[in-house]
């Protein structure tokens, strides 16, 4: 089943002179793990805002073309309706938690939906356990580290039990260790609950191994869209300025010198494997 379907989508912010992105055609299937990457200002974040209706309902501006999310036409359904299907996690962990305790924050979305109290409690515990933050339940959010805050933010979206989770650079405020924990949680959601994941990310070194597909955006357009190995090994992707994983980079350098490995690896363990295979050939 297709969960997100965009056709010739073009959007201009109210104050914008030229479109933030144009002519975007995109299909995302249920259960897919998709990474969207590209240099800053290429329109990734703006595109994400369309997935749960923040664009056009919250931002205004001009949205042309068609976009359907979980069968709902984004232009016709308000954000709170789409938000039940599409969970959104943002960049800055600090500005996503606004209650005085973690528990209350995770409850927020469910309270808004009018879910009965007992059910809310159950879902809070469930979401906190999956994200590994159950022990933080009664702490005030401002006392937590960035990584913990971001995992609580994921829990608070998860508690609403969406079909799709959109994460907009969730690790850009975090250190590598914190980032890795976030990716583990995301990967778990995808693998164990077959939740559709759309992740905007620069740290491809850490995360591209989990992806089914990588989309590269540049100057408001989708320029590459396909298998992670193909996309990352392509010369075009490197020239745009995407941070190619070092393992893939090694593959390319070796290829340049006439050494052809079996396939482009995405992380160091895989690179070892591929090199071993090559040597024992």
């Amino acid at each position: 089943m297709t969960v997100i379907e965009a056709e010739r989508l073009t959007y201009t912010y109210p104050a914008g002179e030229k479109p933030a992105f144009r002519d975007v055609n995109l299909k995302i299937e249920e259960g897919e793990f998709v990474i969207i990457t590209g240099p800053s200002g290429c329109g990734k974040t703006t595109l994400c805002r369309c997935f749960n209706g923040l664009i056009p309902h919250f931002y205004g501006g001009k949205l042309e073309g068609e976009i359907r999310v979980c069968g709902l036409n984004v232009k016709e359904h308000p954000t709170y309706e789409i938000a039940q299907r599409v969970g959104m996690v943002f960049q800055n962990p600090e500005n996503q938690l606004f209650a005085l305790s973690v528990e209350k924050d995770v409850a927020f979305g469910l309270e808004n939906l009018g879910v009965p109290r007992e059910e809310i409690r159950k879902r809070i515990d469930w979401a906190l356990k999956i994200t590994g933050t159950y022990n933080l339940k009664n702490r005030p959010p401002y006392e937590l580290s960035g990584g913990q805050q971001q995992r609580v933010a994921i829990a608070s979206v998860l508690a609403m039990n969406p079909d799709v989770m959109v994460l907009d650079e969730p690790t850009s405020f975090l250190d590598p260790a914190g980032a890795e924990k976030i990716f583990e949680v995301i990967e778990r959601l995808n693998r164990e609950m077959s939740m559709t994941i759309i992740l905007v990310e620069h740290r491809l070194d850490l995360v591209s191994r989990y992806a089914d597909r990588i989309i590269v955006m540049h100057d408001g357009r989708i320029v590459m869209n396909g298998d992670p190995r193909e996309v990352l090994a392509s010369e075009k992707t490197r020239l745009i300025g995407v941070g190619i994983p070092k393992a893939t980079m090694l593959y390319k350098l070796l290829k340049h010198r006439g050494i052809n490995l079996n396939r482009p690896p995405l992380y160091s363990e895989e690179a070892c494997q591929v090199i071993k295979e090559f040597l024992s050939r």
Partner: peptide
């Protein structure tokens, strides 16, 4: 934005 994404006013 976050509040909107968590069904504020649903």
């Amino acid at each position: 934005e976050t509040m909107e994404s968590r069904a504020w006013g649903a």
